[in-house]
Amino acid sequence: MRITCPLCGTRDRREFYYYGDAVYADRPDAGAVPEAWNDYLHLRDNPAGETRDLWYHEMGCSSWIEVTRNTVTHAILGTRLVSERNSRRDKFVYQEGDLREIKPQATKPEPKGTEE
């Protein structure tokens, strides 16, 4: 599996640390009710198919990246910096044009959607 870092380009999965569902980027306010914290920390949509999760480019540029990928095929569908998410409340509802298109940097083009 190779992941396209928005800053560094396509890199081996081993350079990245997986944190979890992108819900982790939407931390509730400190005074939120326990149910909100339960929602944030524990409950997951856990889709078989397209999902968004957070990866940290630990052995690269140290950026936090929101990766859209398919949990059944392991295809990477898109990436963007967590700092470029629309807002804390956009709740990862996919919208057209939501993802920044990442052009492969290498001269060898990467086949899209076939990575494992």
Binding site: M1, R13, N46, A48, T51, T71, V72, H74
Partner: peptide, 13 residues
């Protein structure tokens, strides 16, 4: 393998 998946197969790392 550390990332959420339903693939019933893993990766090389």
């Amino acid at each position: 393998d550390f990332y959420a998946s339903y693939a019933a197969r893993g990766n090389l790392p």
